[in-house]
Simulated scan of single mutants.
Amino acid sequence: MSDCLSLISVLVEELGVYIVSFDRPGYGESDPDPKRTVKSLALDIEELTDQLNLRPKFYVAGFSMGGQVIWLCLKYIPHRLARAALISPAVNYWWRNLPTKLTKEAYSQVLPHDK
């Protein structure tokens, strides 16, 4: 495993990749923001990449509940994204803006005891 991590570290350095993680307002070690909206979270990500002088387009990836953040980026700042990835996203099949066809198909595959 340590050989794999060493290889990844070398590759990340050679490619000039930056991996940035942040706490949403009120989570982790960040202060809550009572004025926060779903749109402002996506705009915060855009501002963070600007403050870090990252390229005009950047990649985003979300794991589990981070999938919601990626949906927000896709909705509010798609012009800034090079690519987006959802990794094992948590899904609420009743979220309003999920595509109906996709939700019905995915929900039909959930085992009955998990519904």
Rank of each mutant, 00 (worst) to 15 (best):
M1G: 09
S2T: 13
S2V: 13
D3Y: 04
L7V: 11
I8G: 00
I8F: 11
S9M: 03
L11Y: 14
E13L: 04
E13Y: 01
L15P: 00
V17P: 02
I19Q: 12
I19R: 14
V20G: 03
F22L: 15
D23L: 06
D23I: 05
P25M: 02
G26F: 02
Y27S: 06
Y27C: 07
Y27R: 05
Y27L: 08
G28S: 01
G28V: 02
S30R: 02
S30I: 03
D31I: 02
D31P: 01
D33H: 08
D33S: 10
K35N: 14
T37P: 14
V38M: 12
K39T: 09
K39P: 00
L43V: 12
L43W: 07
L43A: 04
D44E: 10
L48Y: 10
T49Y: 13
T49W: 12
L52G: 13
N53I: 10
P56D: 15
P56S: 14
F58Q: 11
G62Y: 00
F63C: 06
G66D: 02
G66T: 04
G66H: 04
G67T: 03
V69I: 13
V69H: 08
C73G: 10
L74N: 12
L74T: 06
L74E: 09
R80S: 12
L81S: 05
L81R: 06
A82M: 05
A84C: 09
P89S: 01
V91W: 04
V91C: 10
N92H: 05
W94F: 14
L98T: 04
L98R: 06
L98I: 05
P99L: 01
L102P: 01
T103L: 06
T103W: 01
E105A: 13
Y107Q: 11
L111M: 11
L111K: 15
P112Q: 06
D114W: 09
K115M: 09
K115D: 03
